[in-house]
Design a protein around this nucleic acid. Structure first.
Length: 554
DNA sequence: GCCGTTTTCGGCCCGACTGTTTTCAGTCG
């Protein structure tokens, strides 16, 4: 039983209490207890056994008993009781924007609504507009939200596509009559949002393969003689393209797309591998990520795009000092295990109250903790940083004296997203003028399938970032993948350097370095344009020089 | 529900925004 299982149970209790309880602090107490459990460096079961669990701040009498029960039995009777009061799936309603737990609780209590379909019905027939605290505008908003959630349902983020594609491919590979199978389509192109998973299947015995497919995909149907469609997991559409081994490469190229690329490629000759097909046409191989349009087809030589293994270290890592779920010790150890030469810790700054941003006092504690831990991870170097809020007026959170203490500063917008374009542009430009700023964090602010980024003049920002030597982050969080790879060329032309960061809030989120690298490849970046593809000495020297300049007030 | 003490109740991470209100509640970050 690991601490995260315990924390998840407490979180779920907290979520149910937010539906039922009029006192919001009771629900929040469970959230806080969950965070307290996550922040433990010690083994939860041992703390329970010794009774020390009650000494953990945020864990009281009631939560200590629940934690003990989870450790001893694997579940919580309190949670089971709460679950029994509501239909399963009631939390699906959270997918509707502007619907939170309070309103969902009210909708269920007064109208028995526990599904998106029921919600839509009640919004249409006027029941919702009549509820206290709701009204015609809210009802209208909900209908828009239902539409939004449904549209989104048929799309999914890249990691789900990769996972589903690889799983199906392995199952297909177990079928004796299948000679080869490979994922193609937008997943292979590493597009951040996908609509379906395409897989090319090479076989000489289509009939017997088709007979075995119902074990692998649900709702199977043939779109034509060479194409089957079905679903997997939570309604991910999968398309299988059947071909012969002799034409496998050609079919892989054709179904990888994009349409624009394939059309510009022209006649596709037969070929067992894609490489064969490119060679027959005397075209230099174009990486799948770079096939969104025809622009790469004219190159004389294959470009070696940046790879995850080129990255020597990373920045933008959170810990339990702010809103991370793993401790400093755990995050540093995990970075070292990944073979990094350096890691830059950057918890939130003091204005980010909602994310547990660090006051100056907490910052001192954090630096002391780094000092205590960094010896253990040698020779990996630990850089002291912050993800500082760009405040509404463009100033950087923390005063100059505090900012001087950091090896690096990631400046990010976390508030007032709906600012007018001109004002937002000035805000970000002013932040770039601050000599303490090293990186511009998640530049567009987009959350894929959730919200668009904020509005500002990208080119003016690129121009200024280039002038000031501020690097732009490629945030690898699959929900962000920000800066959008489509914008990278424009920044590159103005001399901007990029850095691939995980924005990790837990050990497992270091995996965002891989998604981030895909985004960098999609943008056509090579390792010479990536800051954290440089070795420790070079990076340390760069940061030290920048720090010296800013101390001198240059 | 948890915490702290100027202990056994009153506060609980803050601010912008929106729609519902006529003074506030819920959501979002």
């Amino acid at each position: 039983m690991d601490k995260f299982t315990v924390a998840r149970t407490l979180d779920e209790i907290g979520r149910y209490l937010a539906l039922t309880e009029s006192n919001p602090f009771k629900s929040r107490a469970f959230d806080r207890a969950a965070r307290a459990i996550e922040a433990l460096d010690a083994d939860v079961a041992k703390l329970v056994a010794s009774g020390e669990i009650k000494n953990v701040s945020g864990i009281g009498k009631a939560t200590a008993e629940i934690v003990a029960e989870i450790i001893n039995t694997g579940s919580s009777t309190y949670l089971e009781e709460l679950r029994a009061q509501f239909p399963p799936g009631i939390f699906d309603l959270l997918r509707i924007p502007k619907l939170g737990l309070k309103k969902i609780g009210q909708l269920y209590a007064e109208l028995g609504i526990a599904s998106i379909d029921a919600l839509e019905e009640a919004a249409r027939n006027g029941q919702i507009a009549k509820l206290k605290g709701f009204g015609p505008k809210t009802a209208q908003q909900i209908l828009g939200g239902v539409e939004f959630a449904r549209q989104r349902q048929s799309k999914f983020l890249l990691p789900r596509g990769i996972e589903a594609g690889e799983r199906i491919r392995m199952l297909l590979a177990d079928i004796a009559e299948i000679e080869d199978a490979e994922v193609s389509g937008s997943v292979r192109r590493r597009l951040e949002i996908c609509r379906n998973v395409n897989i090319v299947v090479a076989t000489k015995k289509l009939e017997s393969v088709l007979a075995k497919l119902p074990d692998i995909l649900d709702g199977l149907e043939m779109l034509d003689e060479q194409t089957a469609k079905g679903t997997t997991g939570r309604d991910i559409e999968v398309r299988l393209h059947f071909t012969t081994p002799a034409e496998f490469g050609a079919e892989l190229l054709r179904t990888t797309g994009s349409e624009e690329f394939v059309s510009a490629f022209g006649k596709i000759p037969k070929g067992r591998t894609e490489q064969d097909v490119f060679e027959k046409r005397h075209i230099a191989f174009v990486e799948p990520e770079r096939r969104e349009d025809a622009s790469e087809l004219s190159r004389k030589k294959r470009v070696r795009l940046v790879q995850a293994s080129d990255l020597r270290g990373t920045f933008h890592v959170h810990t339990t000092f702010s809103d991370g779920r793993n401790t400093m010790h755990e995050m540093l150890s995990a970075a070292k295990e990944r073979g990094y030469e350096y890691v830059g810790i950057s918890d939130h700054s003091k204005s980010a109250y909602y994310a547990g941003g660090l006051t100056e006092d907490r910052l001192r504690e954090q630096h002391a903790e780094i000092t205590a831990q960094e010896k253990a991870v040698k020779p990996m170097r630990v850089f002291r940083g912050t993800e500082a809020d760009i405040l509404g007026d463009g100033s950087i959170d923390y005063g100059p004296d505090t900012l001087r203490k950091f090896d690096f500063v990631i400046a990010s917008v976390h508030s007032q997203f709906q600012m007018q374009k001109d004002q937002m542009t000035e805000r970000i430009l002013r932040a770039l003028d601050d000599p303490s700023v090293t990186f511009l964090g998640h530049m567009t602010g987009r959350r894929l399938l959730t919200r668009d980024g904020y509005t500002f003049d990208y080119d003016r920002v690129f121009e200024r970032a280039g002038e000031r030597g501020v690097m732009i982050e490629i945030n690898g969080n699959p929900q962000r993948l920000d800066i959008d790879w489509r914008l990278v060329k424009r920044a590159l032309d103005r001399g901007v350097v990029f850095s691939i960061h995980p924005d990790a809030h837990s050990i497992s989120e270091y995996n965002a370095m891989i998604t981030g690298t895909w985004a960098a490849r999609k943008a056509g970046l090579t390792k010479k344009e990536i800051f954290n593809a440089r070795g420790l000495d070079e990076v340390a020297e760069f940061l030290a020089a920048r720090r010296k300049n800013r101390t001198a007030g240059l």
